[in-house]
Structure formats: C-alpha cells, structure tokens
Design a protein around this nucleic acid. Structure first.
Lengths: 340, 340
DNA sequence: TGCTAGTGTGTAACCGGTTACATAACGAAA
DNA sequence: TTTCGTTATGTAACCGGTTACACACTAGCA
C-alpha cells in the first residue's frame, strides 16, 4: 500500500501561489491587509487545490475553537428542541458551531458532559437552569469560560441567564385563575428535584395562593416525570376523591395535554366544571378539541438571545439585549370562571 | 495588565514529575507501556496541577478530533430528537462528542453545514436520507470521511445507511388497509421535494395500490409541509367534495394527528366511516381519544445503531449489526374494515 | 564473557495553522 | 537627495500535544 499522500496544507497553497504562508493566512483572515492582486491569485489557488483549512491547527494557534458547548436535559422536549435549533442557527451566523450533549436530568452526567466539552476546547458553554452539580461552576470558572444559563431569568444573577422568570409567570397565571373566582386548586407538577425551573414555577403558584390565604390539599398535589401519559395519571390521581379542585395547574405542556385528554375521557366538562391550564406552548395545545390556556414562552427567542449573549461575551462586546424573555398568558378555552 | 499566565501543559506535568513529555503522554494514552510506579507518580501530578489535555493540540497531532458531525433537517420533529439523543448517548460511550447542525430541509444549507463540519475536522458524518446536494458526496469522498445516511434503508447501498425501509413500510401498511376492504384512498403527504424518505413512502403506497389496480383520485391527494395544523388543512381539502375515500394515509405522525383531530371536529366517525393511519409513533398518537394506527420505527434504535456503525467505520472494525431497522405496523382504533 | 532480545524511557521532529517582528518598497516631506 | 512614515510581504517561532526512533538497561543464552 502506498504511503498515504500528505494532505494539502496552507504551505502548498503558498508555494503554488508563490507567496509566503503568512500572506496566505492573512488573505484568508484579514483580506484587507493583502493587495487586491495577491488576494485574487491566492483565492484561485485555494479553489484549484481544494484546500480546506485544518480546524485543529487553527484552534491550536488561536486558542479558540469556534465551537460552543451546550448541555440540555433532553432533546425530546419540543421547547428545548426549538431553542437548540434557534441557538444553532444564530450561532452559525457568527461562525460558531454547536457541540451538543444531554444530561438526562442528571447533575452528575451534566458535570461529566461539561468536563468533556471543556476538554474539547469550547469557547463558551450553555446550560439549562441555574441549579447544577456543585463542581460545575468551579470547573467553568477555573477554565475561565463564558457561560449562560438558559430558560431562567433571575434578576440577582443578571448577565448570566436568558429566559423567562418562571416564578413570575406562574404567579401571574395563578392570579388569573383567582380572579376567575377559583379557590380550590390542583397541581400536576413536574418533579422539582434537580430542576430549579419547575421549583420556581411551584413557588410562583404558592406565593400567589399564600397572598390570598389559599391552601392546597395535599391530595390535590401530584408530582412526577413529564409526558402526556404521566399527565393523565397524575390528573386522575388528583381526582380520586371528591371534592375536586375547580382549577388544575399543570407544570408543563405535555402534562397539561395529558390532563385535558384524561378529563375528556372522564367526561368532565372543561372549562365549565373545571379549568385546566399549562405552561409552555406546543402546537398540540391549541389544536386539541379543548385548546389549553397556557403561558407562552418563545423558545426560539430564548435560543436566539442566548446565542447573541454568548457571542457578545466571547468577543467582549457590550450586551445590548433584554435577557428576560416574555412569558405571556394565552387564554384559550380550557379556563373559565369557577363553577358557582 | 499582567501578561496572562501560560496555561499548564503536558510539559509542566513532565517537569514536575521528573520525566519526559513522551512518558506523560504514554501514561495517559497507553498506560500499560509505562511502569506502575511512574504511572502513579504522573497521575498524582496531573491531579495536583489540575491539568486538562488540550483537545486541539491532540487533534492536530493525531489527526482525529473525537467529534462526529450530524446534519438533521430539523430538531423539532420528535423522532429526530429521540434519534439524536440516542446517537449522542451512544457515541459518548465511545468517547465521541456530537457536533450538531440543522439543514432546515434545505439542500444548499445542508451542503454548507457539511462543509463546516469537515473544516472542524469531524471524524465522521451523519446525514438524514440519501438525497443530498450534488456536491455533498464529492466533498465527503474527497476528504475521505466515513459517513452514514440515517432513517433510510436501501439494500443497494448497504453499509452506508441505517433505518427503516420506508417504501416497504408503507407498502405493508397499504396492503393492510386493502385487506380490510378499502378501495378508495386519500393521501395526506409531506412534500417529497428534497425528501427521499417521503418519496419512498409514497412509492410504497403507489406500488401496493398499483398491484391491485387501484388508482388515487387527484383530489384525494394533498401534499404540504408537516405539522398538526397542516394535517388538518390537508385533510379538510381532501374531503371538500364527495365521494370521500374510505381510508386516508398520512405521511407523517403530526399530519395524522391533525387529520384525526379534524375528522373529529367534522363529526366523522373513525374508524366506522373512515380509517386514518399515520407513520412514525409519537406519544400523542396513542393518547388521543381515537388512538392512531401507524408504523412504529424505534428512533432511538436508529440513533444507537448509527452510532455503532460510525464507530466501527472509524476504527475499521467489522460491522456486526443489522442496519435495517424494524418498521412494525401498530394497529390501533383509527383503522378498521371499509364501510360496506 | 559476549551476544541477542525485550523492556522502559528520553529526544526531538512532527501535526498545520497564526502572528510578532523584520524587512523591503515606495511616496511624501524636508 | 535624504529621511521618515506607511504599506505589503516574508521569516520563523510559536500553539500543545504525539510518536518514530534512539538509547540504556536487564535478563537469557551460548
């Protein structure tokens, strides 16, 4: 077997074009510093030789890889998927590529993934939420890597997070239900373990209820994973014994879809007998026979702003950007006045 | 401002441990070639200094980055998301990280993304489907990069694709409906432009129908993007004039959900008056009041096998793996005998 | 005792770009 | 004409690992 031919490199381009390697490099990265004529000559040689710059070599020399690492809990949640897609799209506009990893809602795994990403030399890191493995922040700090926590907004940590204020959103949504006359609430929640966003939403509900001195019956509080089927089961568990709550708050889009489907299966009239509301807005929610009232967060906007914030941080530019994303209540048919 | 301290590198580790750089490198990558004693000493120094190997330097020297590039049409499709998650998970077991990009169903964009990934030095590439921009295969070939086309299986290109045989799957599904007595069919399809999988599914349907000399009325064929709402509209268009088909085949999970929801809104009895079937199996389909008959492809299995195939290719190992993924018909309530 | 084979370690030349610094060329100002 | 400033280009030393090859040492054998 003949020895594999050495790949063509910048030196070959330089040789063929009859210039130095520095000039070729400059022609590629700072075209304005190279004379028109050489630039054209070099471009044609590059084209002719089909030279593709070697990323690792460039990364070694510049100490920047042009990659951004992201660790998301899951990709199968439509909102994360949309945010990642927007993030990737926006980053690629600035020449960055996304290195993606999944924590599967496991802090230990998140830590490992972050570690790996740092080894890969990412220029910045994106995480979800503010609650992480205790060593994560040390690792990021020690390596001095810009990072952003997404899907949360916390005025106290301004500049490091992009997303909605989860607590505020559910505080508003709960008050909306209170104004409709509801006094007895059920909650179908995502487990708040390792999930500060889910926790913040619960806090929002509790704060709003506490202000009116409304308490939630323990049997009206169900917590679990997420998914449509999970939503059905948790909803059913809440309705095991009467009296039923007049309004059920779901901590997640899929849970609310499950709750509504189950309510239909049980023959409950929504919203006449019971109001059901969700969080997040996936297409499903507006297409069901009973469209679901929810809090709409534009996930792609979260992704886009995250990208811009990251790029600003990497390039040390000022952040001219609102980091708190809107969380707007979208009223649909699934909510209405409390049954008299 | 003091000049930034040089990062600690392998040379520092070597100096502190009192050995050569080669020995440190070997201790990390081929522990068995280094004496027990040195190995331990080096390990403790590495730990003490908190040294993290520099990925780009290693990549430059080994000519392998340990990254795999993937270009998917979208992430918001649940099946792609699941496959990507499984792919990532499986790859990380073998020490690889996923570089992710999105083509948004645009061949030009796919080509650009592939280009970028190659610049980043990915060790292998994953694409969806076999229909790509004309320059893509040249680019991949020229750079001699292992690649896999996913979500397709084609015996003629065995070894380069992992997924279900789309044509066969819909051929089977159509025959199932024919056996139920259906002779008049409607199709709600995803546009086949730039989407060979959608095309293959259509071919499967047509082949099955042709064998029984069944023709599809042009007005019973509707094609569009995908999504629940799109499904509703396409379905409604098919039913604009009577006589209606007795069975409607949908090219995609979301389209079928839309079709079923719209049929309910229109008061059509499914499956008594009409059968509706889909493709792919997202949670929604089994949770609707009328669960939808469909073809189940285990997307995570597609992702996992893709990962194994890639690793085998990169490391030049034999492929002990079935590359054709099952596409099993899951019969649910939305399909039944044709109305007499 | 001399020779060989085998093991463990060190030396230094890579990998393929970038960029600080030196140099050359040229026009303008003195 | 000399001198200075400006701009365009070249030279070569990096970046931080890996690894071919050389070398030293030990054990085994004739």
């Amino acid at each position: 077997m003949p020895k594999a031919a050495r790949n063509i490199g910048l030196r070959d381009v330089a040789r063929v074009a009859g210039v130095s390697t520095a000039t070729v490099s400059r022609a590629m990265n700072n075209p304005e510093t190279v004379s028109e004529e050489l630039r054209a000559r070099i471009a044609s040689v590059v084209d002719h030789l089909g030279w593709v710059p070697h990323g690792a070599a460039r990364a070694l020399a510049t100490r920047r890889t042009g990659t951004i690492g992201a660790v998301f809990p899951t990709l199968t949640h439509g909102d994360f998927a949309r945010a990642i897609q927007a993030l990737q799209h926006e980053l690629s506009k600035s020449g960055y590529t996304l290195l993606l990893a999944c924590s599967e809602y496991n802090p230990k795994q998140e830590y490992e993934q972050v570690r790996k990403l740092i080894e890969r030399g990412v220029d910045a890191i994106v995480l979800v939420g503010e609650a992480h493995h205790p060593d994560v922040s040390g690792l990021i700090q020690k390596n001095n890597i810009p990072h952003v926590n997404t899907f949360v907004y916390n005025p106290e940590t301004h500049g490091t997070c992009v997303g909605p204020d989860n607590r505020k959103a559910l505080y508003k949504l709960t008050n909306y239900l209170i104004e409709l006359g509801h006094r007895s609430f059920g909650i179908v929640a995502q487990t708040a373990e390792n999930n500060d966003r889910a926790q913040a939403r619960l806090d929002g509900v509790r704060d709003a209820l506490a202000e009116k001195s409304i308490a939630i019956q323990p049997r009206h509080f169900a917590q679990g994973h997420w998914g449509i089927n999970e939503g059905r089961q948790l909803f059913r568990r809440i309705l095991e014994s009467k009296p039923w709550p007049t309004a059920v708050l779901c901590g997640n889009a899929y849970l609310s879809v499950g709750a509504v489907l189950e309510s239909q299966a049980m023959g409950i009239k929504v919203p006449e007998d019971m109001s059901i509301v969700g969080y997040d807005d996936i297409e499903m929610m507006s297409e069901l026979p009973v469209p679901i009232t929810t809090v709409r967060v534009l996930s792609d906007e979260v992704g886009r702003r995250t990208a811009r914030l990251l790029v600003a941080k990497i390039e040390n530019k000022p952040i001219g950007l609102d980091l708190e994303c809107d969380a707007e209540i979208v009223v649909r048919k699934s909510s209405g006045p409390a049954k008299a």
